[in-house]
Design a protein around this nucleic acid. Structure first.
Length: 506
RNA sequence: GGUCCGUUCAUCUAAGGGUCAGGAUUCAAGAUUUUCAUUCUUGCCAUAGGGGUUCGAAUCCCCUACGGACUACCA
């Protein structure tokens, strides 16, 4: 119907981090909003950094978050293959054409030679750059005699292909978020397009594939802005300028503490996951936590990420995926980097947790119980969840709030005892015990009424009666309505715990 | 070092020349409650600095400062 085609093109060098997830999300929202297509392309041109399992991880993580693709390495499509290593033969022709047209050349300098050259410049306080000014002094097809070049190529000598950046032209990149960015070509070095291992570099592969896959908009992180002029030049050199995609460079996600862009290594150092899913590094065995395993709901992660660098201009803060799709626009993406806000992430999760049916929450909490070798009637678990859910941000916190429903307290909060367990309390508790035992019908309401009557009769504050009982039942001064607690626990257990605390204080 | 990008409360951000600079999160206080939490109410807190342009600037321009990205045969 229309020609909006965008892609998310991660490199399988490890787990995706939330910055990457946000890039994927924005691409997804943009595609959906305009009825376009989203493509998942795997950019694995660096064989040395390939990490097994990373591709599967990326697919699973995005699926968990509800980001769906129309074409991609995992589902195929009209432009398959979608993995760059599988597209290897396709790149060679572009390189050959660039060389033939004088846009690129072969360079035979060894990594060691380049290193030496860089060090030499450094000694003189300068920075070496392989460009129009220096390429004439290097070992390449521009400086070597034609015959020598042919000989080296025939002999299979290792070489790379470099882009021949013009010495002095203005290159303009039109960015949908930042406006016009102009740089002089003289600032750029002759980037390697084709490596000695026969694989293209990111720059060539990216441009070639975006063109082949008819990508209309390149929405990617700001770290790519400096190389965007090269990409523009590449489109021009390959004769594709007319169908060049539009660029939108997203602001970076920053570390919440100090400075700098959020990176994979920040991991759990800062108290929040940087990965959508838990990741176990296959080489080191090191485990990094994920949002999913930490108890975040995918909707919360999506909502939080969507607002890190974008907003609809209204005061609405909570959005369904469909609302995000309807509201999204590239124009409303901010230019400055955004710091991750842990507290707000918690708040979002709380909000979405509250929206879940109690049965769902109870289902999750049952797993926690199972893990502790506790079993309970589903109706009872659901009831407990209903009582405590508003007090937590994560399902994992329910246990902290509700363990006493399943296990009698083994100790009593010293601070609470000090403050609330008075001299006359044991006597009061013995009366309370008596009262509850003789209740004709035991219910939360009955307990409440009986204690209220007792307090009035003895001219005691409700707190003097209720709080010690609360401590007896829960171990501290926290938790939901005491009447509800008593009701769930039942007479037998309430009496047992009352005895328990009295015995403990003797 | 060089090139490019950026800069509104602690954090995410709104206000695209004229508003008491708004909202959310956090934090604090109050109310409520038998506890804690929730909830409700209130409060604290910002246009980096300096120059212009203009009747008028958070908004446009310049300089400075600060921050960031990039500067590999990595993406």
């Amino acid at each position: 119907m229309n020609n909006i085609r965008v892609r998310f093109a991660p490199s399988p060098t490890g787990p995706l981090h939330i910055g990457g997830v946000r890039t994927a999300l924005y691409n997804y929202l943009f595609a959906r909003k305009y009825g376009g297509s989203l493509i998942l392309r795997i950019e694995d041109t660096d064989q040395a950094r390939f990490v097994p399992g990373a591709e599967e991880y990326i697919i699973e993580a995005l699926a968990w978050l509800g980001i769906r693709f129309d074409e991609g390495v995992h589902i195929g499509g009209a432009h398959a293959p979608y993995r760059q290593s599988d597209r290897k033969p396709l790149y060679r022709q572009h390189v050959d054409r660039l060389i033939a047209d004088g846009w690129a050349y072969c360079a035979f300098d060894t990594p060691e030679a380049l290193d030496a050259r860089r060090r030499e410049y450094e000694r003189q306080g300068k920075t070496f750059q392989y460009d129009a000014a220096t390429r004439g002094a290097m070992c390449n097809s521009l400086t070597l005699p034609e015959e020598e070049v042919r000989k080296r190529l025939n002999d299979g000598a290792p070489y790379v292909v470099r882009f021949k950046f013009p010495a002095d032209t203005q290159i303009t990149v039109n960015d949908l978020i930042r406006g016009t960015v102009t740089v002089n070509s003289g600032q750029s070095d002759d980037k390697v397009l084709f490596k000695s291992d026969g694989m293209p570099t990111y720059h060539l592969a990216n441009v070639a594939d975006d063109h082949a896959m008819q990508i209309s908009h390149v929405i990617r992180g700001e770290e790519w802005l400096p190389s965007a002029p090269l990409h523009v030049m590449l489109y021009r050199a390959l004769g594709w300028e007319d169908s060049m995609p539009q660029f939108a460079h997203l602001p970076l996600l920053l570390k919440p503490d100090g400075n700098g862009k959020l990176s994979k290594r920040d991991g759990d150092r800062l108290g929040f996951p940087v990965f959508p899913l838990q990741w176990r590094d296959p080489a080191s065995g090191e485990v990094s936590s994920g949002y999913r395993e930490s108890g975040y709901l995918p909707q919360a992660v999506i909502n939080m990420l969507a607002l890190l660098g974008w907003n609809p201009g209204t005061q609405q803060e909570k959005f369904t995926m469909q609302e995000l799709i309807d509201l999204f626009s590239l124009e409303r993406i901010s230019k400055a980097g955004a710091k991750f806000d842990l507290k707000k992430a918690h708040w979002f999760n709380h909000e979405y947790l509250m929206e879940q049916p109690v049965e769902t929450i109870a289902g999750w909490f049952s797993e926690t119980l199972k893990g502790k070798n506790l079993s309970a009637d589903p109706a009872r678990v659901a009831r407990v969840c209903r009582l405590v859910k508003e007090r937590v941000n994560f399902v994992s916190e329910i246990w902290d709030q509700a363990s006493f429903f399943f296990v009698a307290p083994e100790s009593y909060d010293p601070a609470a005892m000090k403050k609330r367990w008075k001299e006359n309390t044991p006597a009061v508790m013995r009366d309370v015990r008596q009262l509850l035992e003789s209740l004709p019908v035991f219910s939360g309401q009955a307990v409440h009424d009986a204690l209220q009557a007792y307090a009035e009769e003895r001219s005691l504050g409700m707190g003097e009666v209720m709080i010690p009982l609360r401590i007896a039942l829960t171990g501290g001064t926290f938790g939901p309505d005491l009447q509800e607690i008593a009701d769930v626990l039942g007479r037998e257990e309430v009496l047992r715990r009352t005895d328990g605390i009295l015995k403990n204080r003797e």
